[in-house]
Design a protein around this nucleic acid. Sequence first.
DNA 1: CATTCCCGCCACCGG
DNA 2: CCGGTGGCGGGAATG
Length: 789
Amino acid sequence: LATPPKAAAAPAAEPWTPTANLKVLMSAASPEIRSREQRRALAGLQEQLSGDEYEKSQPSRKEKSLGLLCHKFLARYPNYPSAAENNYICLDEVAEELNVERRRIYDIVNVLESLHMVSRLAKNRYAWHGRHNLAKTLQTLKKVGEENKYTQQIEMLKKREYEHEFDTDGEGNEEMARSFGSAEHSEMCFVELPGMEFRAASVNSRKDKSLRVMSQKFVMLFLVSTPQIVSLEVAAKILIGEDQFEDLGKSKFKTKIRRLYDIANVLSSLELIKKVHVTEERGRKPAFKWTGPEVLPNARDTKLGATTATWVPPTSESIASKEQCSKNLFPSRVKQGFTRHPSLIKLVKSIENDRRKIQSAPTSPVKISTSSDENLSSVPGKMAQLEALSKHQLEGQSKNAKELEAQLALEGAQCSPRAAATVPARAAAPARPLGVLPAAPLLLPPAQAGVSYTIYLHPSQAPAVTTYSPSLMLQPLPCSHAAARTGINGKAANQTPPEGGEDRGDKGDPRNILTAATRQTVQPESVSHKCLKRSQAFQEHSPRKRCRSDDKSPSTPLTCFPSRCLIPFPQCIHHGNEAGFSNKEKAGMCLLQHATYSSPIAGVIPVTAPELKTVNIPAFHITPLNIMLSPTSIAAAPVLSNSCILSSNTSPAQTPSSSVLNFTLQHLGLIPAEVHVPASPVLQHMTISSNPESVSHSSENTKLKEEKVGKNILNILASAGTLLKILPCCKNLDGPKEPQELQAAQENFFRTPGGPNTVSSFSATSDGTGAISQGTLYIPQRKLEVSED
DNA sequence: CATTCCCGCCACCGG
DNA sequence: CCGGTGGCGGGAATG
């Protein structure tokens, strides 16, 4: 009967009204209040007031939602518990107090565990860690996700989907597409963090619990996709792994969706994601948008020269002996697909080394766009605002005041809308040199039209932004860091986010990064060596996958392209009958090769998945659509709202002109000579469109050179029609670039099968070469309208 | 009807 | 064998 203090205001009396959410949040705000009590009070209240008039109140399903329950659960513990506190959780206890079956608690705890916010100590007992490990966990997950080529998988799915809805014919392609599905990549086990390993060995055995793993994978999808929005459908498909045949996997699919909802609910409670709806060609689909902290690549990764230098291709043995954590990362029960990934091992080590250095690098005004559109425009009604408000309250109350403050400051505006609001001005500011911000995220223009956005690209962010790159984005071109940093040093200082950044000292210090980056720049050789080493290691390590892929597609040898330092993990897969290059293409390659840009690469322009179905690339060579930009080239990158460009985009599908594209890109300084595009099977199912000259289907070049690959990419892009549209609004373009010609070319390769695409634009300026002045790069994006619910 | 997702059966697992 | 775990899918509530 113990009626704990009812501290907080006076929420207890709150009856169950239609505004359940609000209520809920309110109640959640005061941890002391047990649902049981609430219920009791409620019951009494109702009996008195309306007898049994309305039955409505009681359970009202929503009151029992996992999300709500999770809120209550979270309210019991501080986001940032002090080491001293006894933050252990007793499941029974909690279940009882929250008045729910234990089963439900498991659901919550499992996903929390996947984020390392809790860790199991023993039966019925968990340790609460709060968000202390969150940043690191996310970082790790992101990496793993990248290595898993989730980005590619996502794109592939979208593409396939597109095909489905559009043509009723291309059957053969579908099969083909299916063949190189995403299967193997998705098989992996629970990802752990050093220091977060499961305790008792006894409890360790079952790390591959699906909910946990599923949760991690789900999160990875967000961290790896460019617009950080993931639809349930896509997530489910990818998480299922194998591409279940429509029918057979139907049931499985449904179940997966159910689980995803469960996970999504708790992630939502954690405010890491929020529900939205993406409206595509075919109606709107439920999806979730990442609202958690922006995850930046682990910059210190390369700082640990020793680690990298001495890194050795892992073998079953070496791993076990060298890495205490490795076993955890990849449990004994090695399932077919995923094998120990070298980079993961390294990652672990790396993390371990600076484990104590809590990631505190201030993040940029990530949420700018979000805050603006969410708070100002899309909010349906006051209800939403109230809710938001109460959420804040909740947050404030449930958190340890001082710690909260500190954390907020450290984490930047990510989690707290309020905090975000303090930095918005930055967004409005006109073009700002690239790299100025510590970790500027690429703000993709939301569906709303008319608003313009400024894109800040930060080198370290590049990987995250990439849409297609498989594993290469893992290693954020070291050089670029330095370059970007130093290049813009002048402004860098004052541009650095406000946060006090004192926190746990060290890591927050931008100088560390700078120095590290500089060091790298100074010793390019060492870097490339490392990379080379890695690629080799990777190769050696490939056999397994190779075998697997062989199973499905007999003639698909795994090949790795040795790379320079730009492509850390040049893992490429291509078929024996790979396509060759036409003369035209070769010419393009030459251009590419000859083009030299002194400016460092600073970022990656994300190119979203093509929606074209017409494209048909014979063999697989293409893949990542990474276009490196020199820092200066992106200096000013205002993104116009989609609608602004739609008009120019209405032309029917036409023939792409890769040559023009390439040329243009090069001249715009958008394509550094070092563009490396590893081939991957991702786009295999694409077919080059009508234009015969776009791509030839020869098949000899077995040894693809990097340049070729890069070239390929461009072609693919062009042919995919997906790509970019470049509007040279500059006078400096030379050669056969007659304005009209270009114009025509542009229109040509702007294919928009499904009607006008949503397009964002980039305006770029060249680097110091003066070769190019300015141009506008239109990047047609998948039509994606995100709407708040 | 579609989207969400609660409920709880029951298989599994470690002790 | 027991009790904790948690996969899984029916089907109810909601939209």
